[in-house]
């Protein structure tokens, strides 16, 4: 077996362990709820029997480890439980399964994130690399100052500036991104322009700065100076000498920012009333709908962990020291 395979497997195992602990933390959320939350969910008028039945349904009569095992088994088979909302004191249960709530919204969110990423990633890499190559030029200073300003803006400020100009004053793009399952593709794209643009602006700023720093760091290596002293042309220095060593830092930058995108989506969805998973989570927090919050948190965390895992693996498989062991 190639030693690199071992390193990769080790890293994947570490990811799985992390995911396990994260699921433990998310599961234990329900443990910290005050004892009378069943009452609160069902309303003051709920009878002893309905409360008892609800507690039994949640499995609160069983010890926590047993419940965790059952919960994680259910999650793995795609069952995320049932929402708290829709229940009432009478015991009539109009609640919906969490999967049904999340699924369409998850696709909406992924659509929006993908739209932003398709524009943001290449743009940010281009800006970052060129700024690093023409360091301290006017171009670099302008890009630097404007990205430093952008990362200081709260997402909702960027969003409202865009709404003000792009939807109210100058143009007429939709300020509310109302889509549903039937919305045709291009109409969906049109409605998502402003939220996607908001996220793009925020991500590009972060990503460009990180790319620039990573490239500058790389170009300071002695082997780059050696390549120049060997008379290698500027473009060859970049392509042949810098790039093969740049994959790891660039992958890290991309993964970090895609993860950031996933989180940033929460605020943007609320601003544009976009029916995505972020908005669902915020609503569920307001109504303290624990099963939905848990499910959303699990999805966000898993995305985050997997993205970082991929970046690490790219870093491992492009590392010549690991690729060609002694």
């Amino acid at each position: 077996m190639h030693p690199i395979l071992g390193t990769v497997l080790q890293r994947i195992l570490l990811g799985v362990v992390t995911l396990f602990f994260v699921s433990l933390i998310i599961f234990s959320a329900i443990e910290f709820l005050p004892g009378d939350f069943t009452q609160a969910v069902l309303g003051q008028a709920a009878t002893e029997e309905t409360v008892a039945a609800f507690r039994k349904e949640l499995g609160l009569d069983q010890p926590a480890p047993v419940r965790y095992m059952e919960w994680i088994q259910a999650v793995m088979s795609g069952d995320l439980g049932t929402s708290f909302s829709g229940r009432n004191a009478s015991g009539i249960d109009r609640s919906r399964s969490v999967v049904d709530l999340i699924e369409p919204r998850l696709w909406n969110t992924l659509f929006l994130a993908a739209m932003a990423a398709i524009v943001a990633v290449p743009l940010a890499l281009f800006l970052g690399i060129t700024a690093a190559l023409y360091r301290n030029s006017v171009y670099d200073r302008v890009v630097n100052a404007s990205t430093l300003t952008t990362i200081s803006f709260p997402e909702f400020f960027v969003a409202y500036i865009l709404i003000l100009f792009m939807s109210q004053l100058w143009f007429d793009f939709p300020a509310i991104a109302s889509v549903n399952a039937e919305t045709p593709f291009w109409e969906r794209v049109y409605k998502c322009i402003l939220p996607a643009l908001t996220m793009t602006l925020v991500i590009v700023a972060h990503m460009m700065r990180m790319t620039r720093a990573a490239i500058i760091n790389l170009l300071a290596s002695p082997y780059i100076e050696m390549a120049r002293l060997k008379g290698i042309s500027k473009s060859q220095v970049i392509l042949r000498h810098a790039l093969p060593n740049a994959w790891a830092p660039i992958a890290t930058v991309i993964a970090f920012n895609l993860a950031y995108l996933v989180v940033g989506v929460v605020v943007v969805e609320v601003v544009f009333v976009y029916p995505g998973i972020g908005q669902l989570m915020v609503n569920s927090v307001t109504t303290r709908d624990i099963p939905v919050v848990q499910a959303c948190a699990l999805i966000f965390a898993a995305t985050y962990i997997i993205l970082n895992l991929i970046a690490d693996i790219i870093g491992i498989v492009t590392n010549p020291r690991l690729l060609h062991p002694r």
């Binding site: 290596s221 002695p222 082997y223 100076e225 050696m226 390549a227 002293l229 060997k230 042949r240 000498h241 093969p244 060593n245 010549p320 020291r321």
Partner: peptide, 16 residues
């Protein structure tokens, strides 16, 4: 004109 640097370990590109 060719140049031989002090730190050979750092002056060779690890990727080639």
């Amino acid at each position: 004109i060719a140049y031989v640097a002090q730190s050979a370990a750092a002056s060779f590109n690890p990727a080639h």
